[in-house]
Computed example of a mutant assay.
Amino acid sequence: MSIKTFELISTTENGVQLISYVALPESASNDNPVTGILVAPEWWGVVEHPKSVTERLAKAGYAAVAMDVFGEGKLTTDAAMANMWMEQVLADQDMLMARCQLILNDFSDQMGVNGDNVGAIGFCFGGKVVLDMAREGMPLKAVATFHGNLSPKQPADKNFAAKVLVAHGGADSMVTMDAVEGFKKEMEAAGVDYTVDVYDDAKHGFTNPQADKRAADNDADLGYNEAAAKQSWDKMMDFMKANLG
Protein backbone atom coordinates (compact mmCIF):
# COMPACT_ATOMS: atom_id res chain seq x y z
CA MET A 1 0.00 0.00 0.00
CA SER A 2 1.41 3.40 -0.97
CA ILE A 3 1.60 5.89 1.87
CA LYS A 4 2.15 9.60 2.40
CA THR A 5 4.08 11.19 5.27
CA PHE A 6 4.28 14.71 6.63
CA GLU A 7 5.19 16.71 9.72
CA LEU A 8 2.35 17.76 12.00
CA ILE A 9 3.21 20.88 13.99
CA SER A 10 1.16 21.55 17.12
CA THR A 11 1.85 24.78 19.04
CA THR A 12 1.33 24.79 22.81
CA GLU A 13 -0.23 27.77 24.57
CA ASN A 14 3.25 28.92 25.62
CA GLY A 15 4.56 28.73 22.07
CA VAL A 16 6.45 25.40 22.05
CA GLN A 17 6.26 23.64 18.70
CA LEU A 18 5.60 19.91 18.89
CA ILE A 19 6.88 18.44 15.63
CA SER A 20 5.22 15.07 15.18
CA TYR A 21 5.48 12.71 12.19
CA VAL A 22 2.38 11.44 10.40
CA ALA A 23 2.07 8.52 7.98
CA LEU A 24 -1.16 7.42 6.36
CA PRO A 25 -2.38 5.47 3.35
CA GLU A 26 -2.40 7.43 0.09
CA SER A 27 -6.08 6.46 -0.26
CA ALA A 28 -7.15 8.07 3.06
CA SER A 29 -9.43 11.08 2.49
CA ASN A 30 -12.40 12.86 4.05
CA ASP A 31 -14.65 10.51 2.07
CA ASN A 32 -12.55 7.55 3.16
CA PRO A 33 -11.25 8.29 6.69
CA VAL A 34 -9.12 5.61 8.36
CA THR A 35 -8.57 4.56 11.95
CA GLY A 36 -5.88 6.52 13.80
CA ILE A 37 -3.05 5.21 15.99
CA LEU A 38 -0.84 7.46 18.11
CA VAL A 39 2.76 6.30 18.61
CA ALA A 40 4.60 7.50 21.74
CA PRO A 41 8.35 6.99 21.21
CA GLU A 42 11.07 5.85 23.58
CA TRP A 43 12.95 8.61 25.39
CA TRP A 44 15.17 9.18 22.33
CA GLY A 45 12.42 11.29 20.69
CA VAL A 46 10.95 10.90 17.19
CA VAL A 47 13.97 9.02 15.76
CA GLU A 48 14.04 6.32 13.04
CA HIS A 49 12.34 3.61 15.13
CA PRO A 50 9.04 5.43 15.85
CA LYS A 51 9.00 6.83 12.30
CA SER A 52 9.34 3.33 10.84
CA VAL A 53 6.56 2.14 13.20
CA THR A 54 4.18 4.83 11.88
CA GLU A 55 5.06 3.86 8.31
CA ARG A 56 4.40 0.17 9.02
CA LEU A 57 1.03 1.09 10.49
CA ALA A 58 0.19 3.23 7.45
CA LYS A 59 1.08 0.37 5.11
CA ALA A 60 -1.35 -1.77 7.13
CA GLY A 61 -4.13 0.76 6.49
CA TYR A 62 -3.98 2.99 9.57
CA ALA A 63 -3.23 6.68 9.98
CA ALA A 64 -0.39 6.99 12.50
CA VAL A 65 1.48 9.80 14.25
CA ALA A 66 4.79 9.63 16.13
CA MET A 67 4.28 12.13 18.93
CA ASP A 68 6.87 14.78 19.75
CA VAL A 69 6.19 15.18 23.46
CA PHE A 70 9.59 16.77 24.17
CA GLY A 71 8.88 19.62 21.75
CA GLU A 72 10.94 21.29 19.01
CA GLY A 73 11.58 17.88 17.43
CA LYS A 74 14.41 17.11 19.87
CA LEU A 75 16.27 13.84 19.20
CA THR A 76 19.19 12.13 20.89
CA THR A 77 21.12 8.86 21.04
CA ASP A 78 22.66 9.81 24.40
CA ALA A 79 20.91 8.19 27.38
CA ALA A 80 21.92 10.96 29.81
CA MET A 81 20.39 13.61 27.53
CA ALA A 82 17.27 11.48 26.95
CA ASN A 83 16.89 10.95 30.68
CA MET A 84 17.21 14.69 31.33
CA TRP A 85 14.50 15.50 28.77
CA MET A 86 12.26 12.77 30.14
CA GLU A 87 12.68 14.05 33.70
CA GLN A 88 11.89 17.58 32.54
CA VAL A 89 8.51 16.55 31.11
CA LEU A 90 7.77 14.16 33.98
CA ALA A 91 8.36 17.04 36.42
CA ASP A 92 5.15 18.57 35.05
CA GLN A 93 2.92 15.69 34.06
CA ASP A 94 -0.12 17.94 33.58
CA MET A 95 1.86 19.80 30.91
CA LEU A 96 2.91 16.49 29.34
CA MET A 97 -0.72 15.32 29.18
CA ALA A 98 -1.80 18.69 27.74
CA ARG A 99 0.77 18.20 24.97
CA CYS A 100 -0.58 14.71 24.30
CA GLN A 101 -4.16 16.02 24.19
CA LEU A 102 -3.07 18.73 21.74
CA ILE A 103 -1.38 16.23 19.41
CA LEU A 104 -4.39 13.90 19.69
CA ASN A 105 -6.75 16.76 18.75
CA ASP A 106 -4.62 17.98 15.84
CA PHE A 107 -4.09 14.46 14.51
CA SER A 108 -7.82 13.64 14.82
CA ASP A 109 -8.60 16.79 12.79
CA GLN A 110 -6.39 15.75 9.87
CA MET A 111 -8.03 14.98 6.57
CA GLY A 112 -8.42 11.24 6.17
CA VAL A 113 -8.21 10.44 9.91
CA ASN A 114 -11.25 9.03 11.71
CA GLY A 115 -10.93 10.92 15.00
CA ASP A 116 -13.73 8.87 16.58
CA ASN A 117 -11.78 5.63 16.31
CA VAL A 118 -8.30 6.02 17.78
CA GLY A 119 -5.79 3.80 19.57
CA ALA A 120 -2.24 4.32 20.84
CA ILE A 121 0.99 2.39 21.21
CA GLY A 122 3.96 3.35 23.32
CA PHE A 123 7.55 2.19 23.72
CA CYS A 124 9.43 2.42 27.08
CA PHE A 125 8.81 5.97 28.36
CA GLY A 126 6.16 6.20 25.62
CA GLY A 127 4.37 3.28 27.25
CA LYS A 128 3.80 5.46 30.31
CA VAL A 129 2.66 8.32 28.06
CA VAL A 130 -0.10 6.32 26.33
CA LEU A 131 -1.25 4.59 29.53
CA ASP A 132 -1.44 7.96 31.28
CA MET A 133 -3.48 9.33 28.35
CA ALA A 134 -5.98 6.52 28.99
CA ARG A 135 -5.79 7.14 32.76
CA GLU A 136 -6.69 10.78 32.06
CA GLY A 137 -9.80 9.60 30.22
CA MET A 138 -8.70 10.58 26.71
CA PRO A 139 -10.87 8.85 24.06
CA LEU A 140 -8.57 5.95 23.18
CA LYS A 141 -10.22 2.61 22.46
CA ALA A 142 -7.08 0.47 22.59
CA VAL A 143 -3.63 1.00 24.13
CA ALA A 144 -0.61 -1.25 23.61
CA THR A 145 2.82 -0.90 25.21
CA PHE A 146 6.18 -2.45 24.40
CA HIS A 147 8.72 -2.62 27.26
CA GLY A 148 6.72 0.25 28.75
CA ASN A 149 7.18 2.19 31.94
CA LEU A 150 3.98 1.21 33.78
CA SER A 151 4.09 3.71 36.67
CA PRO A 152 0.90 5.80 36.76
CA LYS A 153 0.46 9.57 36.83
CA GLN A 154 -2.55 8.65 38.95
CA PRO A 155 -4.14 5.21 39.28
CA ALA A 156 -6.69 4.15 36.67
CA ASP A 157 -10.35 4.66 37.54
CA LYS A 158 -13.73 4.52 35.79
CA ASN A 159 -12.54 7.09 33.20
CA PHE A 160 -10.11 4.52 31.78
CA ALA A 161 -12.04 3.35 28.68
CA ALA A 162 -9.29 1.70 26.63
CA LYS A 163 -8.51 -1.98 26.38
CA VAL A 164 -4.83 -2.68 27.11
CA LEU A 165 -2.13 -4.98 25.76
CA VAL A 166 1.28 -5.00 27.49
CA ALA A 167 4.34 -6.64 25.92
CA HIS A 168 6.99 -6.97 28.65
CA GLY A 169 10.46 -8.47 28.51
CA GLY A 170 11.11 -11.14 31.15
CA ALA A 171 14.77 -10.03 31.26
CA ASP A 172 13.92 -6.31 31.58
CA SER A 173 16.04 -4.90 34.40
CA MET A 174 14.49 -1.41 34.16
CA VAL A 175 10.81 -2.35 34.59
CA THR A 176 10.65 -5.08 37.23
CA MET A 177 8.15 -7.92 37.49
CA ASP A 178 7.02 -6.25 40.75
CA ALA A 179 6.05 -3.20 38.67
CA VAL A 180 4.13 -5.51 36.34
CA GLU A 181 2.27 -7.07 39.28
CA GLY A 182 1.43 -3.61 40.62
CA PHE A 183 0.12 -2.63 37.21
CA LYS A 184 -2.11 -5.72 37.06
CA LYS A 185 -3.60 -4.83 40.46
CA GLU A 186 -4.20 -1.24 39.28
CA MET A 187 -6.00 -2.44 36.13
CA GLU A 188 -8.08 -4.98 38.04
CA ALA A 189 -9.15 -2.39 40.63
CA ALA A 190 -10.38 -0.13 37.81
CA GLY A 191 -12.11 -2.96 35.91
CA VAL A 192 -9.91 -2.51 32.83
CA ASP A 193 -9.81 -5.22 30.15
CA TYR A 194 -6.06 -5.92 29.93
CA THR A 195 -3.56 -8.55 28.81
CA VAL A 196 0.10 -8.80 29.86
CA ASP A 197 2.43 -10.92 27.71
CA VAL A 198 5.90 -11.66 29.09
CA TYR A 199 8.61 -12.53 26.55
CA ASP A 200 11.10 -14.65 28.46
CA ASP A 201 14.56 -13.65 27.22
CA ALA A 202 13.69 -10.14 26.09
CA LYS A 203 15.44 -7.12 27.62
CA HIS A 204 14.31 -3.51 27.86
CA GLY A 205 14.03 -2.00 24.36
CA PHE A 206 13.56 -5.42 22.71
CA THR A 207 11.57 -4.04 19.73
CA ASN A 208 14.17 -1.46 18.70
CA PRO A 209 16.71 -2.70 16.12
CA GLN A 210 19.12 -0.01 17.43
CA ALA A 211 18.88 -1.26 21.04
CA ASP A 212 22.19 -3.17 21.01
CA LYS A 213 24.08 -0.14 19.70
CA ARG A 214 22.35 2.15 22.23
CA ALA A 215 23.28 -0.35 24.97
CA ALA A 216 26.95 -0.38 23.96
CA ASP A 217 27.17 3.40 23.55
CA ASN A 218 25.45 4.15 26.86
CA ASP A 219 26.46 1.17 29.03
CA ALA A 220 22.73 0.42 29.43
CA ASP A 221 20.97 -2.93 29.82
CA LEU A 222 19.05 -2.83 26.53
CA GLY A 223 18.79 -5.45 23.81
CA TYR A 224 16.98 -6.15 20.54
CA ASN A 225 15.16 -9.48 20.40
CA GLU A 226 13.96 -10.21 16.88
CA ALA A 227 11.64 -13.09 17.82
CA ALA A 228 9.96 -11.16 20.65
CA ALA A 229 9.74 -8.04 18.46
CA LYS A 230 7.94 -9.92 15.69
CA GLN A 231 5.64 -11.89 17.99
CA SER A 232 4.63 -8.83 20.03
CA TRP A 233 4.06 -6.74 16.87
CA ASP A 234 1.77 -9.39 15.37
CA LYS A 235 -0.20 -9.61 18.63
CA MET A 236 -0.52 -5.83 18.75
CA MET A 237 -1.82 -5.73 15.17
CA ASP A 238 -4.43 -8.41 15.97
CA PHE A 239 -5.38 -6.47 19.13
CA MET A 240 -5.84 -3.20 17.21
CA LYS A 241 -7.87 -4.93 14.51
CA ALA A 242 -10.12 -6.52 17.14
CA ASN A 243 -10.72 -3.25 18.99
CA LEU A 244 -10.51 -0.60 16.27
CA GLY A 245 -11.33 -2.55 13.11
Score class of each variant (00 low, 15 high):
Gly73Arg: 03
Gly71Met: 01
Asn114Ser: 13
Val16Ile: 14
Gly223Thr: 04
Ala156Asp: 05
Gln101Glu: 12
Ala64Glu: 04
Lys213Thr: 15
Ser232Lys: 06
His147Glu: 06
Val34Gly: 08
Met240Tyr: 13
Pro209Met: 04
Asp217Thr: 11
Met95Val: 14
Ser10Gln: 09
His168Ser: 03
Val118Phe: 03
Asn114Gln: 09
Glu48Ser: 14
Pro25Ile: 09
Leu18Val: 05
Gln101Met: 02
Pro41Gln: 00
Ser2Gln: 10
Phe123Trp: 07
Phe160Pro: 01
Gly73Thr: 02
Ile121Arg: 01
Leu57Phe: 12
Val16Glu: 05
Gln101Ala: 09
Ala179Tyr: 08
Ala66Arg: 02
Gly245Phe: 05
Leu38Met: 11
Lys203Arg: 10
His204Asn: 03
Met133Leu: 05
Ser2Asn: 15
Asp201Asn: 15
Asp212Ser: 01
Thr207Met: 12
Pro209Ser: 06
Gln231Gly: 07
Val46Asp: 01
Leu222Arg: 00
Ala58Glu: 09
Leu222Val: 09
Ala142Leu: 07
Trp43Gly: 04
Lys203Gln: 07
Gly115Glu: 02
Ser10Leu: 11
Met97Trp: 09
Ala120Gln: 05
Ala189Pro: 11
Val46Cys: 03
Gln210Gly: 11
Trp43Ile: 10
Val39Trp: 02
Phe123Leu: 06
Thr77Lys: 12
Met240Leu: 15
Gln210Met: 11
Gln231Glu: 14
Ala91Ile: 08
Asn32Thr: 12
Lys4Val: 15
Gln110Ser: 07
Val47Lys: 00
Lys184Ala: 13
Met236Cys: 15
Val53Arg: 10
Lys185Cys: 09
Lys128Gly: 15
Met97Gln: 12
Glu42His: 03
Ala91Asp: 13
Gly169Ser: 05
